[in-house]
């Protein structure tokens, strides 16, 4: 594990204020994620994690400040931004009546991409989705398998930036390990990853940097030293201490 791998900033939140109805959810949030970095935005319920992610996806409008993806302002260049990002929702609910292959083909077609069967199968291999499950409907899948399918889809989209919403929520420990390994490999291959999570241990396992979010404000940042993971105890203490 290391700190910021490359200098180029691909994800940036600049004094971001987001108001939903009458409530200020994000209050001047600022952080940057460099190319090839895994940044975990850690916070409890109502901290503003999902709002941050949805602002980067263009579902929320900033009342002031801005969110940037690869230098593009999300609010004014949404179509270009979405082409550069692959989003993994918390509950990767793809279509349960379709098989993994059909789901991936469907979503790739939506994105205007055409991938060969071998490219799809190779990606399924990469995310360690069992071969005998490829032609099965997703309604027979465990949550971990659905997550792998969604990650395969994100990889096949060849987007340089991944936005992950509580990606390990509800996964068993083995599946979490597999997932963390996969995310680390993705980052090693140049992908930039912003994940929001309330899982302190999981964030420390995988992230290069962790931003601690509380009531819409960034209250602390933790960075891994070269080849070392972020100290879980330190982050946990900060997380617990700062909870209301």
């Amino acid at each position: 594990m290391g700190s910021s791998k490359q200098d180029k900033t691909l994800i940036e939140s600049k004094s971001l204020h987001v108001q939903i109805k009458d409530t200020s959810v994000l209050k001047g949030l600022s952080f940057r994620v460099a190319k090839g970095e895994i940044y975990a935005l850690l916070g409890g319920n109502g901290a503003g994690k999902s709002t941050t992610l949805k602002t980067f996806l263009g579902f929320n409008q900033a009342s002031s400040g801005a969110a940037f993806i690869d230098g593009l302002d999300v609010s004014s260049s949404l179509a270009s931004v979405r082409k550069k990002t692959a989003y993994l929702p918390e509950n990767a609910t793809l279509y349960p009546h379709l098989t993994a292959k059909e789901n991936v083909e469907y979503f790739l077609s939506l994105a205007g991409l055409n991938k060969s069967a071998s490219e799809i199968e190779n990606t399924f291999d990469l995310v360690a989705l069992q071969k005998d499950a490829w032609e099965r409907q997703l309604q027979t899948y465990s949550k971990g398998m659905r997550q792998k399918t969604a990650i395969a889809l994100a990889i096949l989209r060849e987007a340089p930036i991944f936005l992950l919403d509580e990606p390990t929520s509800g996964l068993d420990p083995v599946a979490i390990d597999e997932f963390n390994q996969l995310v680390t490999e993705l980052a090693s291959s140049g992908a930039t990853i912003l994940m929001v999570t309330h899982d302190v241990y999981g964030a420390c396992q995988v992230a290069n940097r962790i931003g601690l979010l509380r009531k819409g404000e960034l209250v602390g940042e933790f960075e891994a030293n070269q080849n070392e993971r972020i100290d879980t105890e330190v982050v946990h203490a900060a997380f617990a201490q700062r909870q209301p």
Binding site: N91, L110, G112
Partner: peptide
């Protein structure tokens, strides 16, 4: 309701495509 809306919207190349 099924949690696919945001994935669909962020994946599709245009509104018409979906």
């Amino acid at each position: 309701a099924s949690g696919r809306h945001e994935l669909l919207v962020t994946t599709t190349e245009s509104s018409f495509a979906l």
